[in-house]
Amino acid sequence: MIRFKEKLKTYKRKPFSLFLYILVHLAAFITVGVLGALVIYILVKGIPNINTDLFAWEYTTENASMMPAIINTVLMTALPLLMAVPVGVFSAIYMVEYAKRGNKLVKIVSLTTETLAGIPSIIYGLFGYLMFVIALGWGLTFIGGAITLAIMVLPTIMRTTEEALKAVPDSFREGSFGLGAGRLRTIFKIVLPSAVPGILSGIILSIGRIAGETAVLLYTSGTQAKVVDSVFDSGCTLSVHMYKLMSEGLYTKEAYATAVILLMMVVAINWFSGFIAKKFQKTY
């Protein structure tokens, strides 16, 4: 209490400092306030609209079920990761473990990765449309959307893996080399296992990004609300489903409910990624 009074005295003499003090608190309050308002609004409006009809196996115009979209979302998350994780992890291994300092290729790869990270999803969507729907003549396909998404999350996976590999102390590598292990063995048996938590958090980050993605999939994988039969079938994920519900204007209640599910998915993914980061956090 005394400290507070003293502080108040200083502020009286220096009103500008008080002004700054108030400003930063206000900004933090706004940030949390906006998030709180958004989450509470969606939950309050959405939860009463959730009913079993929304989880029927088949979509009809009457029930506006989101179950097919949920299943598609799970598939659409797995498929791009199957492609992006090996490429991303391998390329990070090259960047950190193999390339020598000042290597030209490393510089170019860093630049292109940065470029990929900056490209907005609508450009990815256009590219996917031009390449898979038009140029290859596949039409709207699940696999077209998945490949496009794989390119989109590649920089995320590369960057987190690179950071995780860099965080593994050199003494680990030296110890392994000292015991006579080759480079490859050292990487797969010593370095990669120590970097797993970092890689995992990158993967979870990517899952979040894919699950919330709409613009990429709208013109690559299409908007059909049914579970895909094959990768060359067209089907929508939950975010695309929600966009469709909103733009048709007839399903506001269902859109609220879908928003709740999407939001909860994101919260769960965030929580899980934080949990993993904490659980495996090691100090060398």
């Binding site: 949390v32 919330g212 993605e213 965030n270």
Partner: peptide
Amino acid sequence: LKPAVELLAGIPSIVYGF
């Protein structure tokens, strides 16, 4: 605050739009 900011980053744009 930190998780709040992270959550803000994770919310899909379609939900923001809604």
